[in-house]
Structure formats: structure tokens, C-alpha cells
Amino acid sequence: MRNGRLFTIVGGIFGLIGLVLLCVGVALAASTASFLASAERTDGTVVGLTERTTTTRGSDGRTRTSTAWYPTVEYTVGGRRHSFQSSTGGNPPSYEKGDTVPVAYDPGDPSDARIASFWSAFLAPVIVGGLGVVFTPIGTVLFVKGRRAVRQRAWLLARGRQVWAEIEHVGRDFSVRVNNRHPYVVHATWQDEGTGRTYTAASDHLRDDPAPRLRGRTRVRVLYDAADPDRNLVDLDASPAQP
């Protein structure tokens, strides 16, 4: 897949995920604020901590585990005892057994309650919304970069100056990882006849080793902007034997 298209697709996905997370975060915050505004208050006691361990796999393929402790709170309304487990956990634990905590509950349904501290009530909306704030601009930047690359490719294919550049290097680009692998890249150099300067063009990142299809070839076609030779495109499909 071409780099421009890849950036466009990934950017669109990231941007969409970011917008969804932002909307979810705002909705959660609004729902929590509405609940707290109409809720009654009382004091509760932490009667236990539940340990939860989650396992995730990172982009490097390694498995990581994280542990959080979720408090169970008991409180009394109208002589009747209620309890709930907080949906917000922490590591280290935010509370210890026996701690007194503020509790907000629905006067119409006293069993519907939550810890009334800011972080316990709004941590989930802050995390979800924060991820949205991170994903959205990243997606936007990638999308814009991808669209610009697609337009530049189309311009070079239609109007770029052609040169047959000498293949300088074929191998992996160890500065980049795509799907946890270093992609392949082809570098080729040529000398501008007008200025005498030497330029180097790099191909798109390639999933498969291009060496087999380049076997026996010493040059590849490069299309470049005469006004700015650093804007270029390596065409691995063309052959010097072609017109």
C-alpha cells in the first residue's frame, strides 16, 4: 500500500476514534454531573478492596499486566444498609479498608450510588475524553499528511521530470516499524544536470523485500519536481527497457 493512502486511512481511523472518544467522554461527564446535581449526600465506609488484573499486548508484541484495587463502600439511608463497588480503581489503592468516604445516591433509588469525590466520579470521563483529545489531532495530522502525499504523487506522475537513478541501497529501514516489522526501502541517487548536485530518493516503505524483482537492475525510474528535486517519487515498476 502506498504511504499516502496508508496515512490517509490510518489518520481517518484515528480521527474517527478520537471523535467518538470525545463524544463518549463528554456524555459521561454530563451524565455524572447531572447525577451529582440531583443526588443526596451521606457518608460511607470502605469495607473491602477488590483486586483486578488486566493483560494487554503492546505494539512491540510484549504482554504486560496491570493491577488496580476497587473499593466496596457501605452506607445507610433511612435505616437500610446499601453497598456498591466503585467503577474506579487505583494502583496504589486510593482508599484503605475502614476509610470514610462521601457518597452521592439517587433519592429515588438509594441503591444507585457512587463515591462523591471529583476523581472517583469523573476519572472515567477524563480518561476517555483525554484519549479523544490525543487521538483526534494525531488522526487529523496523519490524514492531512496522507492527502498531501496522494496529491503530490498524482502531480509527480503527471508532471514530474523523469530520471533513471542509480540504485544505492536496498534493505530494511530500521528507523521505522510497521506492524511490528521494519519495512524495506530502496534508495537511489542521481545528479542534476543543471546544478551538478546529487540527490537521493527513497521509495515508499515496502512490506516485502524488493530485491528479487530488482535482480539484475542497477537503476530505477525517479520522477521529481524540477523546482524542488527533494519532492520525488521512486517508481519500482518501470524498467529502463520501457519507453
Rank of each mutant, 00 (worst) to 15 (best):
G4A: 06
L6H: 08
T8K: 09
G12R: 05
G15S: 09
L16S: 13
G18Q: 10
V20A: 14
V20Y: 07
L21P: 00
L21M: 14
V24N: 06
V24C: 11
G25M: 13
V26M: 13
S31N: 06
A33V: 01
S38L: 12
S38N: 07
V47I: 15
G48S: 15
G48V: 08
T50S: 15
R52A: 14
T54K: 13
T55W: 14
G58F: 09
R62Q: 15
S66F: 05
T72V: 11
V73T: 01
S83D: 03
S86F: 03
S87C: 01
Y95Q: 05
E96L: 06
G98I: 03
D99F: 03
D109K: 05
D109W: 03
A113K: 02
I115W: 03
A116S: 11
A124N: 07
I127N: 04
G129A: 03
G130P: 12
V133N: 00
V133I: 14
G139P: 09
R147C: 11
A149Q: 02
V150C: 11
R153D: 08
A154L: 12
L156I: 00
L157D: 04
R159V: 03
R159H: 10
R161D: 05
A165S: 12
I167Q: 09
D173I: 02
S175E: 02
R177Q: 14
N180L: 15
N180P: 09
V185A: 14
G194C: 04
D204S: 02
L206C: 04
L206Q: 02
R207V: 07
P210T: 01
P212T: 02
R213Q: 12
R217C: 11
R221E: 06
Y224A: 15
A226C: 10
P240Y: 13
